[in-house]
């Protein structure tokens, strides 16, 4: 079976054709880089996305802290990941890469901070 996949890893949006026979990938054509190759194989076997959202942060410049999953999670889990972040509150200071929620929604991925938040003088 042939599947056409639009790569979402970067703006080039490569159109990648993946041939699958008896559940295993036979060929991958049209990818522009290693990230695209990996994405296309995953998209036809177990589609995943990196989820980016925000959590509440107290004591920083802004009331929200941007966060992301440390790795792509199954597409079917996106909604659960976002729901799991509702009600989460952290306190400044926060360091980029700091784990905010471990093993979010049972995906094995952590939710990590995307940026530093310095405490602001009230």
């Amino acid at each position: 079976m042939l599947s056409d996949v639009v790569c979402v890893r970067c703006p080039r949006s490569c159109l990648i054709r993946v041939a699958v026979e008896e559940g295993s990938v036979k060929s991958v054509e049209g990818y522009g880089c290693r990230l695209g190759f990996e994405y296309a194989v995953e998209e036809v076997t177990n589609p995943k996305r990196t989820v980016c959202s925000t959590v509440r942060v107290v004591g920083g410049r802004y009331p929200r802290l941007p966060v992301r999953t440390s790795e792509p999670v199954p597409k079917s889990k996106i909604r659960e990941v976002v729901e799991a972040l509702r009600g989460v509150t952290v306190k400044a200071p926060v360091r980029r890469g700091e784990v905010i929620v471990r093993n979010v929604a049972g995906t094995g991925a952590d939710v990590v901070a995307e940026m530093d938040v310095e405490p602001e003088a009230a």
Binding site: R34, L35, T50, P66, R68, R96, E114, M115
Partner: peptide, 10 residues
């Protein structure tokens, strides 16, 4: 060679 978020890139 990585897909970073905007704040991470900055």
């Amino acid at each position: 060679g990585k897909a970073l978020s905007g704040p991470e890139f900055a």
